[in-house]
Design a protein around this nucleic acid. Structure first.
Lengths: 329, 329
DNA sequence: CTGAAAGCGCTTACAG
DNA sequence: CTGAAAGCGCTTACAG
């Protein structure tokens, strides 16, 4: 494989000059630069990544750290996130290293072996060990999720508070006084996942303010059949005139469940949910929904991380997106 | 950050010895090895990845190359694949580099910069430029999908031929003489994606053998509303007694579509599909389906790639999985 | 059984 | 404006 010496020889300059041209150093004259670029082109030269990383002490790659474990369903969405972040990162000249299991351990290893310049933590929970690791070792890190405290790390997520208020206000205007709320599983709550906790707190507070009665349902288990849970909720709280679903598997199966039982939405029951815009389309979720834009979230995460790498002492960023409530007619 | 010299000093040996211990070289005595390991532990040493890669000329990372472009829906599944492969690779001591857009170009760059030891190509199409690149540059590569010709590259996929036959035989036994077949979009076919082409050919051949009439429908567009397509198919071919859906978005929305129209499955219409087992559960796909195990596919891909890296001259592997047909009662 | 030394392919002060 | 040289942190024949 052709290396920098080959290029230097072909261009009749030193290795240093080649290196300077490659990094667009302004001290090099146009002429010299052009000679070098020609040689690069003709020889098909590409910088050796390991050598550059070793020498320059930066890898131009970001690590995406998955949470310790999660159910099958969560993984599907998670995958989409990873994919989108990979795309955004690529556009910014960064590669993306996927850090699968073991959360904090794998993350520490990737960092101490200098395999990445920084991390994006997926689905952070309160007091997440990965956050503590990042803080302790002063690692550029952006957090996905809404932990109670991010300990100074940059955060990006959707704004649960606004989402919850918007949902409740909409229901209040439609005069619903009794609703049922289908949440993530108890397992998720036990793991203190920020998105589950925050949304729950916010929506309950908002409902209280409007004096709306809320029947709360949280499946015992991640793998519980979401269709059954919806049916049970319908039976148990038959006087509720609206249902808020904040649970992705349940949202996905809800349309077929209602259709099967013969519940007409929204005539018989107003249904509201929070769901990624990108999937709303292909999965035909026909509810009034707050439509999360996961591409925008991904892009922001990458940008925040790039800024953080460039300046470790910049003030902490906390970007919460206020996604729109879309009401299907 | 602590490096190999620090460890050598602390253990009272040379750098070489530390390196040998780390690679479990049998020439080092137990005693020395233990001393070194102790120092490693106490100092919290981790090998610098770039240095090792530069010196040993291997990166212990695999690149996962996404196809040039694909629709939103495809991406969701794609993400799951990436995720699962990352997990499998991690278990085998490999990291996973996600190579987003630009297909062959990004792949060439990752290779010439020596960022990875090999590639897994997602969703390969006939004559895929990424395959040619891999062959031309003799890059260890495993191909996901069923191209007409893999040019000697290792292949892993499900066995479309067997799937198609199994589906048709099942329909034949149930005495269906006229069926409708909903396929991937014309865009997908135009891009010559192996899975779409192979399945289509195989199922038509099998149907011909059993003298079953097939009405074929392929949406013009990836983003066409799959629910409408199903409804149209139902209207256009009302005498068909079975429907085979080989199109993931359509499969996902099919249950709610049938429920809405009042078509009872399987009483009014036998519906068959091919769908990842892992998503069948969470998405409540209630059809007779060939259940692809994407975790197994991912694992096999990683294993094949590891073998290929270890021995470039080994005979080509072509692993096709025969996944079971599961009939929901 | 262990160590001194060369080399992997870059970047970057520093000197001129 | 350009080049000689040190150095990044490892691995690996080779010598002893």
């Amino acid at each position: 494989m052709v290396n920098i010496s080959d290029v230097a020889r072909a261009a009749g300059v030193s290795k240093a000059t080649v290196s300077y041209v490659l990094s667009n150093d302004p001290r090099i004259t146009q002429q010299t630069a052009e000679k070098v670029r020609k040689a690069v082109r003709e020889l098909g030269y590409t910088v050796n990544h390991a050598a550059r990383a070793l020498s320059a002490n930066e890898t131009k790659t970001f690590g995406i750290v998955s949470p310790a474990s999660h159910s099958n369903y969560l993984s599907a969405l998670f995958g989409l996130h990873v994919y989108l972040m990979g795309e955004c990162a690529a556009r910014c000249g960064y590669d993306t290293l996927f850090i699968g299991s073991d959360g904090a351990d794998a993350m520490r290893k990737a960092w101490t072996s200098k395999k990445v310049d920084g991390f994006i933590l997926m689905d952070v929970c309160d007091d997440d060990p990965r956050m503590h690791l990042a803080v302790d070792m002063n690692i550029p890190t952006v957090v996905f999720g809404s932990p109670k405290d991010s300990f100074g790390l940059d955060v990006v997520d959707s704004d649960f508070n606004k989402e919850a208020n918007r949902i409740i206000e909409f229901l209040d205007e439609e005069q619903h006084r009794e609703i049922t709320l289908i949440l993530w599983s108890k397992q998720i709550f036990k793991r203190q996942l920020g998105f589950a906790l925050r949304f729950y707190d916010d929506i309950m507070a908002a409902a209280r303010r409007k004096s709306i009665d809320v029947h709360v349902i949280s499946p015992d288990d991640d793998d519980a059949d979401p269709a059954q849970i919806i049916e049970q909720a319908l039976n148990a709280y038959s006087k509720a005139t609206a249902m808020v679903i904040y649970n992705e598997p349940a949202t996905i199966v809800a349309p077929q469940t209602f259709a099967k039982i013969g519940v007409k939405v929204p005539e018989d029951l107003r249904v509201m949910t929070v769901f990624p815009k990108q999937l709303t389309l292909s999965m035909k979720i026909p509810f009034a929904s707050v439509q999360t834009d996961i591409r925008q979230l991904a892009q922001t995460a990458i940008q925040l991380l790039m800024s953080r790498v460039a300046n470790r002492d910049a003030p902490m960023a906390n970007v919460l997106f206020d996604f729109p409530l879309v009401v299907e007619q």
